[in-house]
Computed example of a mutant assay.
Amino acid sequence: MTKSIIDIIGFEEATQLMASAIHDAVECRGKLGLPKAVNVDGVVYRQYPDGSLEQVEVINGSLARPFESPVTRP
């Protein structure tokens, strides 16, 4: 039977690696100017790096307009 990476490196180290990766991703998102989703009293907003909020319209549990990336890809 094949061991999982968590079995190999241990739960504590795996948790630390995941927390570090999340921190790096959040920091990168901010540098790119991408918004993050926040929930304020049950209402979903996009929060931009400058702190501004844009309410997200939710229809049948899905975003009416998905998050767009200002980064263009070739």
Rank of each mutant, 00 (worst) to 15 (best):
M1N: 09
T2A: 02
K3A: 01
K3G: 02
K3E: 00
I5N: 04
D7L: 01
I8R: 05
I8T: 14
G10A: 01
F11Q: 15
F11H: 15
E12F: 02
T15V: 06
Q16N: 14
L17M: 14
L17P: 04
A19W: 05
S20D: 10
A21G: 03
A21V: 02
D24P: 00
V26A: 11
E27Q: 14
C28Q: 12
C28N: 13
C28K: 15
C28M: 11
G30S: 15
L32A: 13
L34E: 14
A37R: 05
N39R: 01
N39Y: 07
N39M: 08
V40K: 11
D41E: 14
D41A: 06
V43T: 04
V44K: 04
V44L: 10
Y45G: 05
Y48T: 05
Y48K: 04
P49I: 11
P49T: 10
P49G: 11
G51W: 08
Q55V: 12
Q55M: 09
V56P: 08
I59M: 09
G61P: 05
L63G: 04
L63D: 07
L63V: 06
L63Y: 13
A64K: 10
P66D: 12
P66S: 02
P66Q: 09
P66E: 09
S69H: 12
S69L: 07
S69T: 15
P70E: 10
T72S: 06
R73I: 13
R73Y: 13
P74L: 11
P74T: 06
